[in-house]
Design a protein around this nucleic acid. Sequence first.
DNA 1: CCTGAAACCTGTCTGC
DNA 2: TGCAGACAGGTTTCAG
Length: 275
Amino acid sequence: MPELPEVETIVRALRSGGRGGLPILNRTVESTEVLWSKTLASPTLDELHIQVRGQIVKDVLRRGKYIIIQLDRGYLLIHLRMSGDLRVTSAIKDTPLPHDRFVLRFADGIRLIFNDARKFGRVWFTRDPEQILGKLGVDPFDPSLTAPFLFSNLQSKKKHIKSLLLDQSFLAGLGNIYTDESLHRAGIHPLRLSNSLTKPEAGRLLQAIRDTLEEGINRNGASIDWVYRGGDFQNCFRVYQLTGKPCPVCGTIIERIIAGQRGTHFCPRCQPKGV
DNA sequence: CCTGAAACCTGTCTGC
DNA sequence: TGCAGACAGGTTTCAG
């Protein structure tokens, strides 16, 4: 499901409410429950219990697609992967759902519940988050990511641009939807080699990525299928899952190819293959 | 260093 | 109706 805008939407809801949920800031952890053992990546269940009990939620942050729940002494990290979602339930209205995998129960009875149909999502508790987050590349909104910096990074690699943008160690936060949408907005073919992009193209790409993500965040993410609800960015797609439909810019029929094992949508006219 | 395939999983949709 | 196959917002690991 979730790429940067969906994760950002969830993080904001955990900080200050939204999506029909309650904020979790300043609540005290009482206990944890693991309903699918693989969901807890580390430490062990016993160790987790000992470590987090009594700790207070100090902040909720995002890095790439990771949700960071900052406690007094340590961090809970959550990655939603393909089908994960988080909800906060009050003590009264607390109906368990199919696919609930992990529960953080607070002293006041409120629960943070991790639901994940496909079981790919993971939760970590660690004192040193960099151990897990350190491999991530720069965040798209990081001011240190300038057009010249992106250009030189693109030059240093020789990969299909679509695959490179999906590589979280290169840039942290883009997934399949926002990559396709950003490349269309920038007018760049998904199979162009990264080191073939010109300086102006790198500048356009950076702007397109930021504009696309910002629009996604403003619309609370994209709701597709049964997995994620609440956003409406799906109504603004230009190419994603629009195979056979006309490009909103030029009317050419949108094509679908496979790039880096992922379904990839583009306009052959707005995004020519030739340099 | 790069690509492609497979693995981890379940749910939904399409076509026969 | 039933069933097989394709496909899905992600990441890691391994072979070539």
